[in-house]
Measured scan of single mutants.
Amino acid sequence: TGEEYIAVGDFTAQQVGDLTFKKGEILLAIEKKPDGWWIAKDAKGNEGLVPRTYLEPYS
């Protein structure tokens, strides 16, 4: 299990392996990579890379 984050903006996948999401979606951070791209999972179970700058902790 990971930590929940809320998307603060829309993001469209730029390449294969990225995860597209919309502002307000809750994402589960699976792995926090030091380069600023995290592996996350959305509510539908889709998994991919997301930019850290689009996420804020969800409580």
Rank of each mutant, 00 (worst) to 15 (best):
T20M: 05
A43C: 12
I39N: 05
G24H: 05
W38G: 01
Y58F: 11
A7N: 01
Q15R: 15
A40Q: 01
D35G: 14
L49R: 15
T12N: 10
L28T: 13
E25L: 03
K41I: 13
P57I: 09
W38P: 01
L19K: 00
E25P: 00
P57G: 05
I26N: 02
K23Y: 07
L55F: 05
G45M: 04
I6A: 04
T12D: 11
F11K: 03
W38Q: 02
A7P: 00
I30D: 00
F11W: 14
P34S: 14
W37Y: 08
G48Q: 01
I26W: 07
W37I: 08
G24I: 02
P34F: 10
S59K: 13
N46P: 02
G36E: 06
K22S: 08
A29G: 03
Y5R: 01
E4F: 15
Y58T: 08
L28P: 00
V8T: 11
I30R: 04
P51R: 07
K32M: 09
T20K: 04
I39P: 02
K44F: 14
L19E: 01
P51L: 10
K23F: 07
T12R: 08
V16I: 12
P34E: 13
G9F: 15
G24T: 02
I26Y: 05
E4S: 13
Q14G: 09
G24C: 07
T20I: 04
L49C: 12
E25K: 00
K44V: 09
F11H: 07
W38K: 00
A40L: 09
E3M: 13
K23Q: 08
D18P: 03
A29F: 08
A40S: 03
G9C: 15
W37F: 09
P57N: 06
D10Y: 05
F11V: 05
F11S: 02
I26P: 02
W37K: 08
I26R: 06
I39D: 02
V16Q: 13
R52H: 15
G36A: 04
P34A: 13
Q15E: 10
W38L: 07
L27Y: 02
F11G: 01
V16K: 14
E25I: 03
T1I: 13
E47T: 14
G9T: 14
T53H: 14
K22E: 06
E56T: 10
Y58C: 08
Y58I: 11
I30E: 02
P51C: 12
L55H: 01
K22A: 08
N46K: 09
A43M: 13
E31C: 12
K41N: 03
E47M: 15
I26V: 10
F21H: 00
E31Y: 12
E31K: 12
Y54L: 15
I26T: 05
D18H: 15
D42I: 02
F11A: 02
